[in-house]
Amino acid sequence: MSRFDLDELRQIMRASAGVDEGVDLAGDIGDLEFGDLGYDSLAVLELVSQVQRTHGIVIPDEAVEEMPTPNRAVEYINRLAMEGKAS
């Protein structure tokens, strides 16, 4: 898969789970906790399942715990994609 980045995650967040009032997704959100951005655990699960669909990778449900922030989610997804290529 092509490298997954924060902008793509922003798009998925907007489309799949909406945006809370007072949250600027276009801003510097990379290191903010999903909870502080208004995304609960269900919202993060939904983001993950969107990534699985669009990139054809398999992400275990437990992986959500390793994605507390958008940047960590991007890192995790790219690492997983690289491992998938290597195997």
């Binding site: 489309a15 799949s16 789970a17 909406g18 945006v19 809370d20 009032e21 208004g38 269900l42 919202a43």
Partner: peptide
């Protein structure tokens, strides 16, 4: 409807 709740 609040934006977050529309797709939910």
């Amino acid at each position: 409807v609040p934006d977050r709740l529309v797709p939910q």
